[in-house]
């Protein structure tokens, strides 16, 4: 191998850093959507690298539904302090005060208010003209065609038919007042790339990703965490299950998986053996065929 051919992880890293710098150079008020999950952790590390030895030149925005795991919030606050990031937390308190929750509203409506609405409000409040997200094209079929720069009209809506062609590494960053873009620097990363990079770079992640005995409701193949008191079906009893989270969302919508993996290499190994799609356990995706795409049109990531 030519010593000057770089490895796939370094090639992906270089591409992502290029994207981060382009956006910061060309937009007035960029922000990074920080979900606390592993993809966010990678995104933050890439931002640190892109502007080293400077600080990350934009805030991190977390949309807190208040139904997250306590461990996530603890990690978020410690991590952001450690790296000196400017963290902004936004919650749709109006909806919460009116009693919004996944159990009585159903996951779709709940997500609409506490995630989508809250996100759009937070972006408008900035006002931010560019928001980095950690979405990857490989995650879900409808994302395979998502651009790296994804345009939103002044209502934050996405139109799959009017996206701009993207050639080479030249991105068209022109927007009108009130419009904004979502930017996905991890577009070309796979779940495996993300895990390998976390391993290689020793990036800190929320302990929820590692297996340990946790109180769970076992519903068929699905494990539902008991945090935030989900509704029990008749005959259900919480029980301790050795498990970990495959992806992090609100406790209600994040299925856990049985696992023994307590290190990143073990997680990668499990990934290889099982090869299940990342979102398999996210209850949200089973609601409706193509549900992700509908949410995306409405402004959810």
């Amino acid at each position: 191998m030519d010593p000057r051919v770089i490895t796939h992880l370094r090639a992906l890293e270089a591409e992502s850093i290029h994207i981060l710098r382009e956006v910061v150079a060309e937009f007035q008020r960029p922000v990074m959507l920080y979900s606390i999950g592993k993809d966010s952790s990678v995104l933050v590390r890439l931002a640190q690298k892109a502007f080293h030895p400077g600080k990350i030149p934009f805030p991190l925005l977390h949309v807190d539904t208040t139904f997250k795991f306590g461990e996530m919030i603890e990690f978020r606050d410690r991590f952001c302090t450690d790296i000196g990031a400017n963290l902004i937390v936004h919650t749709n308190w109006n909806a919460i005060h009116e009693g919004a929750n996944p159990y009585t509203l159903g996951t779709q409506k709940c997500c609409g208010l506490l995630k989508t609405r809250a996100l759009l409000d937070a972006l408008a409040a900035g006002p931010y003209d560019a928001a980095f997200g950690g979405a990857r094209r490989e995650e879900e079929k409808s994302r395979a065609k998502e651009r790296i720069y994804s345009f939103r009209d002044s209502f934050g809506q996405w139109d799959p038919k009017s996206q701009r062609p993207e050639l080479w590494n030249i991105y068209n960053s022109r927007i009108d007042k009130g419009e904004s873009i979502r930017v996905f620097p991890l577009s070309n990363w796979t779940e495996l790339d993300v895990w390998q990079y976390i391993h290689l770079e020793e990036i800190p992640i929320v302990p929820l990703y590692f297996a340990k005995p946790r109180p769970m409701i076992v519903r068929g193949q699905t494990l539902i965490p008991v945090e935030h008191n989900p509704k029990l079906m008749p005959g259900e009893e919480p029980q301790m299950v050795q498990c970990r989270m495959r992806s992090l969302g609100c406790t209600h919508c994040t299925g856990a998986m049985r696992s023994e993996a307590v290190t990143v290499p073990q997680i990668i190994q499990e990934l290889f053996v099982m090869r299940r799609s990342e979102r398999e356990n996210r209850v949200i995706d089973h609601d409706q065929e193509g549900s992700m795409e509908i949410k995306k049109r409405e402004g959810y990531f």
Partner: peptide
């Protein structure tokens, strides 16, 4: 390898889609 809803309904693919394997 097909993607978006509109395409699924029309039975044609209409854009550039990126796929990953290793």
């Amino acid at each position: 390898t097909d993607g978006l809803r509109a395409e699924r309904e029309q039975g044609i693919t209409i854009d550039v889609a990126y796929r990953y394997f290793s």
